[in-house]
Design a protein around this nucleic acid. Structure first.
Lengths: 361, 361
DNA sequence: GCCCACTATCGAAACGATGCGATTCGCATC
DNA sequence: GATGCGAATCGCATCGTTTCGATAGTGGGC
């Protein structure tokens, strides 16, 4: 069912003119009753508001106001993939929480714009048809390049979290590489030499079996997702001999399957460096299913520092300031809308030792 | 065409009139090039689109279009409490996923409207100032009554999930009571006689210590939250002697503390019926902390059937069709926007036996 | 070659509110 | 009672698009 914005007749609504007529003032005066600026007698204002109440006027029409002011007061939040998946992703949610908090403070509405819908491809139509003053790229997605031109044409303020690294997008970036390097060195210092890496799928419509075993630095340059690439590179700098497996999808289960493949080798790794926390949880589960005890028999690490209250244990990982990066993105939106030109920033990360890592047996 | 006057932001934009001028047609013809209806030569359309591309016209201004059509194509999703907390709540998220899916299908945008912001009270201003065609109450909140009049005045289509039970709101309701009754009977049939109930806080700004022990039916009528009330009533019908404790907040930790109080009694219950899954997880944790084994020493049940992949075990609970209720709410929005008058529905729930319940020792 | 029936295009009037510049009002002062 | 002045109110153009009714153009039938 596709609805058309055009065929339906406008709802008969009460307008400011009606209020003005009832209150026996001009519409411009009636308007004054609702604005902050301009001078109007308290008596007149009261009369106008009374008239408004009498005929059930709900206040100035937001659309008309927007047309006049050129501002909608709405920020589009662009999500790679589907809204559903984003909502299942603790990293995205933590960022979103920070972003919401900041956007709340500057009194702008938050419009969710998924780049793809559940039932297939999201037409650019929805994206283009929405009255937004600015957009925030909440999660990094390769698919964004296609929609950038249209946003530039609209002269929208653009803020990105971890990308896209494109002209005109103010960025909140994360120091992924150095964080992952610290973590890898920690694992090496524990004594590990045989490590496996479980990485996120680089395919857009990822779903299926895990990829083959590959050398850690195989084809690194061809990975367009900067986040994935830089994290791998950091691991490679410490463990040039590591083996990597690409999970078949982005969900927990894919991580479990991929990690399982690593664990089922004749000579299995003593440490699995998962490229994010969800994959690490999958690895923990794969270990549990095989009676492998963590951290005694296996070290498992993640990345992100997501809040996983249900997990019941504390992952050794690298903590990103997830909430903070949302806040910063929100702040940037505010500055851009106010006419400023905030500069991009790179936020630091912090290694966190949990109870999933230890020396090899 | 520079038109930055004084205070208004300088957003000099390219308009349809500019395109028309360049293509040497009238603006009405230029408009035709972007519409589905109306007749226009393919040649002319091509010329217009070429002109548009040349001067970087990004397509019709959504705000102006909305003003003319009386429709914004945006649905407001109203969240009780803060956006942040909603995002941490698996029940709300599952519902949201279904809702998003349905709203995607009818090509409407999704605007998040939290009733309260992180930093304090949400002014009605934001809510009132947003150009929405309809609103969906995603989660039940006592605070909604205050904003209903304004929505009625705006003649917005209104759809609610589990409330508010108010005139003009089309509802997707859940058969809470009978589901909870089935679950309670199951626990009774297992042989349990001494049961404790952990319930959600009824305070809006809940945070603090758990409430006192109370009889299950103490003051039931004074609980305005229908969901909480009906679930409790159902338990009371099976276990008139049950003791209830109100958690101090809505988070996991509050559930743990409240359940801990029940477990620390001299004679502790053999079963804890938590009023939702998160509280049940809290109860599991309280039990684990005390070396009480579930289900051998204690039966713990929840309500909702939320997807908790990180938990690692399967809660005995009542499954709501969470995704489905979101879908249904979305469908209702579509029908209302199309001029229909869908009727409210009540969705069934299903008892699900997990591995957290068993006979008392 | 004339008239008719289309159809592509155009002009102008909305949609509902805002804000500039002009006008009127109220009132104190001379 | 006339004058001056600030404050309150008003009229009108405007934001960018859509759409209705009017007009010009095209081609076919006879």
């Amino acid at each position: 069912m596709v609805k058309s914005m055009t065929t339906t007749p406008a709802r008969t609504s009460v307008t400011l003119a009606d209020v003005a007529a009832l209150a026996k003032v001009s519409t411009s005066t009636a308007s004054l009753a609702y604005r902050r600026t301009g001078s109007i007698t308290e008596r007149t204002r009261a009369r106008i508001l009374a008239a408004a109440a009498e005929i059930g006027y709900a206040g100035p029409n937001p659309t008309a106001r927007s047309l006049k002011s050129g501002r909608s007061g709405i920020v589009g939040i662009i999500i790679a993939g589907t809204v559903r998946r984003a909502f299942q992703n603790p990293v995205a949610m933590a960022t979103m929480a920070g972003l919401s908090e900041a956007l709340d403070d500057i009194d702008v509405g938050q419009l969710l714009l998924s780049h793809r819908s559940e039932s297939g491809d999201r037409s650019a139509r929805l994206l283009d048809g929405m009255p937004v003053d600015a957009v925030v790229f909440l999660t990094r997605g390769e698919e964004f390049d296609g929609i950038l031109p249209s946003m530039r044409a609209r002269r929208l303020a653009m803020v990105g979290v971890e990308g896209p690294h494109e002209e005109g997008v103010t960025l909140v970036d994360i120091d992924d590489a150095s964080g992952m390097a610290v973590l890898a060195r920690h694992v090496r210092d524990l004594g590990h030499r045989r490590v496996g890496v479980v990485m996120r799928s680089t395919r857009i419509d990822a779903n299926g079996p895990p990829g083959p075993f590959e050398a850690i630095d195989a084809d690194l340059d061809s990975i367009s997702n900067r986040t994935i690439r830089e994290r791998l590179r950091a691991v490679a700098s410490v463990f040039p001999d590591a083996v990597r497996v690409e999970a078949g999808g982005r969900e927990l289960d894919s991580g479990e399957i991929a990690a399982g493949r690593l664990l089922d080798q004749a000579v299995r790794p003593t440490a699995i460096l998962a490229q994010n926390d969800m994959l690490a949880v999958g690895a923990l589960r794969a270990a549990a299913a095989r009676g492998i005890e963590v951290p005694r028999d296996l070290t498992v690490t993640g990345f992100d520092g997501a809040d996983l209250p249900l997990l019941g244990r504390r992952l050794t990982t690298v903590e990103q300031p997830l909430h903070e990066r949302g806040l910063q993105a929100g702040r940037m939106v505010g500055e851009l809308l106010a006419g400023g030109a905030p500069s991009s920033i790179v936020l630091p990360v912090a290694f966190r030792e949990g109870d999933t890592s230890g020396p090899p047996r």
